[in-house]
Design a binder for these strands. Structure first.
Lengths: 178, 178
DNA sequence: TGTACATCAGTGAACGCGCGTTCACTGATGTAC
DNA sequence: TGTACATCAGTGAACGCGCGTTCACTGATGTAC
């Protein structure tokens, strides 16, 4: 029944209506409250599922560490395939702006998931890098995808993705001494 | 009548209802179509107004160039004041995800505005920097603010802002030689 | 093995509400003569 | 200067629609005896 995860990513939190989620699961609207207390509860469960997916895709699947990890993760995340498949992509890109306008319960759940992801990133970047760089890596990836999705022409989207890939890849790199 | 600009940034595109915009302007719902052909047309005008604001705040107001500009612009953009005042803040943060799900006309207008802003950033970064770095600068700032807004605790938001500030400030910097 | 009953996921109609848009209208303004 | 008329921003009721949620219900399942 977590078609919710797909619809939240495709259409945002307000766009993922109870009707449509239940319909996508082959059920009718009324039965919803046998599974969730609330629409918010559904969104929170969808967050958990999609962040788990992200952990698998970006951390468990990429064996490298440090700079090499950052480079491979950025290359995997900032692709046209990801651009074109929001329903199977990053939930932060799709829903963070909605979460920002939502009730504290949802924001709390979101924060917890983000912190978990940052902790994993930090571990991967490890040597010589701080949590700060893990956060910056995530923010750069998210910002890049948000902008690439919003733009009209494919060529412009590609330019944005390329710029983001370069910037994010460099984050694990030892800092210039100056 | 561009209270629209404020409401789009506070509540997103679907959240800025025709009723509320007209109400905020002291008018009633029916008169809307004497000013705009469409809700989309209103959003497009709101975009134009808010991007103009951004150009003033981040380019015209900051005389420095190159690395110093990036540093000052990031410090100005990634503040708690901006975090707390979405209605007077960056429209990309508030609405890019909505634009990504909207009709081509809106996406086209958004793209044009983004390109204008990137061109200005590029000019400011000028020596030794490419358009690519102007794009990365913008993406990093946007991603940072999006995440900082969505998180629940002030302390976490502050951490994210600080990380973004550091990453964005470094973007005008001469690259390490390696 | 066979009957009686409790459980509970799922149904579908209904609720009150806000949305974007339309439409016949009002009433102040400005021009024409 | 004074009357007649066109313009058009703004009004407020109405439209069809989809939203989240509720509620009495159905019907398959599993347990108790």
């Amino acid at each position: 029944v977590k078609q919710a995860a797909r619809l939240v990513r495709e259409r945002g939190v307000p766009g993922a209506s109870v009707n449509d989620v239940m319909g996508a699961a082959g059920l009718t609207r009324g039965g919803f409250y046998a599974h969730f207390t609330d629409k918010t509860a559904m969104v929170i469960e969808a967050l958990a599922a999609t962040f788990a997916e992200a952990r698998t895709n970006l951390v468990e699947t990429i064996p490298e560490e440090g700079e090499a990890w950052a480079s491979r993760a950025a290359d995997k995340y900032l692709t046209e395939a990801h651009l074109d498949a929001p329903g199977r992509g990053c939930v932060i890109v799709a829903a963070a702006a909605d979460v920002a306008r939502s009730e504290p319960a949802l924001r709390k759940a979101f924060q917890q998931e983000v912190e978990g992801l940052v902790a994993l990133f930090d571990q991967k970047l490890s040597d010589g890098c701080s949590r700060e760089e893990a956060v910056a890596f995530l923010a750069t990836c998210v910002g890049t995808m948000v902008m690439a999705r919003a733009v009209h022409d494919r060529s412009v989207a590609r330019e944005i993705l390329a710029a983001g890939r370069r910037a994010a890849s460099g984050i694990g790199r030892a800092k210039p001494r100056r």
